[in-house]
Design a protein around this nucleic acid. Structure first.
Length: 605
DNA sequence: AAAAAAT
């Protein structure tokens, strides 16, 4: 994955520059970021700047600018923070500062888009805003800031506004309308929303805007090669982290806010180099992040914004210990000091507990699921024996091809249960004349990224995938999701079919069902029923027969409701936000069920 | 049981 800064020629300077070598000893050279080398010494370099940051106490970082005088001298340093110290204007000056001398920031909008040509027409892969009109939204908490209806109402700054135009965002999505004002007001947020609802922008805009305007102490001077991001965005899979990184780079283009991504499976050295060159927003998967922390190449003590994306997925994948380590056991400022946004498609107990632990007096936001509410995804279930699956798949693909689906317009995503199954199905499809590729966790990261690219571009319009691709990935033009193997969890099913019918486009989801999936019958038929889909009789019979299986409404969930309303949850000292029920003026929450049935397992359980 | 994620 090309990362703009890595690809610039200064990377070479970096390797060659004497200043690049870093010493740990006090007498050795201090790392000077490449963009600050060969600059005439400014006033700031005469003496070491003082630094008053979180290490000295729990005051808000913004106070550091004003109160920093004479607090602590750590290391000789360049004028990184000069504007903040001298004028107290913070980052607006910094843009001129650390961006000056950089020839050109790589164009994050892709080769087809000239960022200078804001009104340049491009295929609209964006959001079908009409599809958002009826999406129900629910908020609760103390003093919920009012939602906005346009981006213009929000003061995000000219640079960000221009990027919003470049991205062709005309109008905020529901999650953006609500989440952005909440975030800009400095409040913590627990949001139930899906990727595809525009939530990446919903958490990126306030972060970028906050970093730009914040009178923060930029980098605590250190002699080590430690990176100090101001914002951290955690996501469950590498591909999702990449995707967030790509989007965030567009939003941050020419704002001076630097976005870096770190994830496993890729050489760590390049990522370390990126971090060394400065990072404001770090997007990461938990494993690699812990690695970086343990190598002491990264400190979280400057974190002002924390965003956890697809939090339920991260818990499913067993990341809770790592996440708790990152958030609670390293040097990250506590809730109330940092600002935290927790995004999750579902809201089970574990997430509620996490919300209690990670957030301070938060606002709860639930957004109906886009594309699932209506007929945007046509769901079909077919009874297919294991042994017949391949030939049946072949029939579907032939029919699809016969219908003249343009390759690029009709991508087909085939979900299977196992990594081995993915490989063998891919091979079999290719042998039978269907250009397919596969993505799963046993493939190298390079292969994974190649597969995804090849699929997105329509080069191989069939992608065989395990659940690695089930959530969050936003691939335009997926016309058909085939559950070759049904998952064992209805939530996974919802996420998988959510790869189609995105952003207001219609999609088709076909599932192969047989006796092995009996445990899914009930939940599946309920889900389809509530989404006004035709449920085959045989499936209803299966459903009636099955006792076990997961009841969608069960599982000890409070659903999308703000659980703080439920007094049973407020037990003991964990209720640190005091007072307990924050759901002021909140009532009649059940009203949306039914109408938005397919989203029932997500935001509207 | 399988998948994902650090090496």
């Amino acid at each position: 994955m090309p990362t703009s800064w890595a690809d610039s020629s200064t990377a070479i300077d970096f390797a060659a520059a004497p200043g690049a070598s870093v010493g740990n000893g006090s007498g050795r050279s201090t790392y000077v970021p490449p963009h600050l080398r060969n600059r005439p010494p400014s006033a700031g370099q005469q003496g070491p700047p003082s630094y008053s940051g979180p290490a000295l106490g729990n005051e808000r970082f913004v106070q550091g600018v004003q109160s920093g005088g004479g607090s602590r001298i750590i290391a000789p340093r360049n004028d990184y923070n000069r504007s903040g110290y001298s004028g107290g204007v913070g980052w607006n000056n910094r843009i001129g500062g650390w961006e000056r001398g950089r020839e050109r920031e790589a164009n994050p909008f892709g080769p087809d888009v000239d960022p200078e040509q804001v009104f340049n027409e491009q295929e609209n892969t964006g959001i079908n805003f009409d599809a958002y009109e009826d999406i129900p939204v629910e908020t609760s908490g103390e003093n919920v800031p009012l939602p906005v209806n346009t981006f213009a109402e929000i003061d995000l700054g000219e640079a960000l506004n221009q990027n919003i135009r470049r991205c062709k965002y005309v109008k905020p999505t529901p999650v953006q309308r609500h989440a952005i004002p909440i975030s800009l007001a400095g409040r913590d947020l627990m949001a139930c929303a899906q990727t595809g609802s525009g939530k990446t922008a919903a958490f990126c805009f306030p972060i970028i805007s906050g970093i730009m305007s914040g009178q923060c102490v930029q980098r605590p001077p250190r002699m080590s090669r430690m990176a100090y991001p101001l914002a951290l965005i955690l996501s469950p899979t590498r591909e999702l982290s990449c995707q967030i990184h790509e989007e965030a780079r567009k939003f941050a283009y020419q704002t001076g806010v630097r976005v870096v991504v770190a994830y496993g499976g890729a050489p760590i050295n390049q990522q370390l180099r990126e971090l060394e060159r400065g990072v404001d927003i770090l997007v990461a998967t938990p494993g690699r992040l812990v690695d970086l922390l343990e190598r002491a190449r990264l400190s979280l003590q400057m974190i002002r914004y924390l965003a956890l994306d697809e939090a339920d997925r991260m818990l499913d994948m067993g990341f809770e210990p790592q996440i708790r380590k990152i958030v609670q056991q390293m040097d990250m400022p506590p809730p109330g000091i940092r600002q935290t946004m927790l995004f999750s498609a579902t809201f089970p107990k574990e997430i509620q507990r996490m919300a209690s632990d990670f957030l301070a007096n938060y606002i709860f936001l639930a957004v109906g699921r886009v594309g699932s509410s209506t007929d945007l995804i046509a769901q079909r279930v077919e009874f297919v024996q294991e042994t017949d699956k391949r030939s049946h798949l072949m029939d579907l693909l032939h029919a699809q091809r016969a219908n003249g689906g343009q390759a690029k317009q009709s991508l087909t995503l085939v979900f299977v249960e196992t990594k081995k199954g993915a490989d063998s199905l891919e091979h079999w499809l290719c042998m039978n004349g269907f250009p397919a590729t596969a993505i799963h966790g046993d493939r190298s990261q390079q292969e994974r990224e190649y597969a995804l690219r090849s699929f997105k571009t329509g080069h191989t319009p069939i992608l065989v995938a395990t659940d690695v691709a089930a959530r969050g990935l936003d691939i335009p033009h997926v016309a058909h999701v085939i559950n070759f193997d049904l998952p064992n969890d209805i939530d996974d099913y919802v996420h998988r079919i959510g790869r189609t019918g995105r952003a207001g486009k219609t999609g088709l989801a076909t599932a192969f069902f047989n006796e092995n999936n009996a445990s899914m019958a009930k939940a599946l038929s309920e889900l389809m029923q509530e989404a006004n889909q035709e449920v085959p009789d045989w499936l209803s019979r299966f459903a009636a027969r099955s006792y076990g299986g997961k009841n969608r409404r069960g599982g000890g969930r409070f659903g999308s409701r703000d659980f703080r309303r439920d007094s049973s949850f407020n037990r003991g000292p964990a209720d640190y936000y005091g007072g307990g029920n924050a759901g002021v003026g909140y009532g009649g929450s059940g009203g949306y069920n039914g109408a938005y049935a397919a989203g029932a397992t997500s935001a509207w359980d």
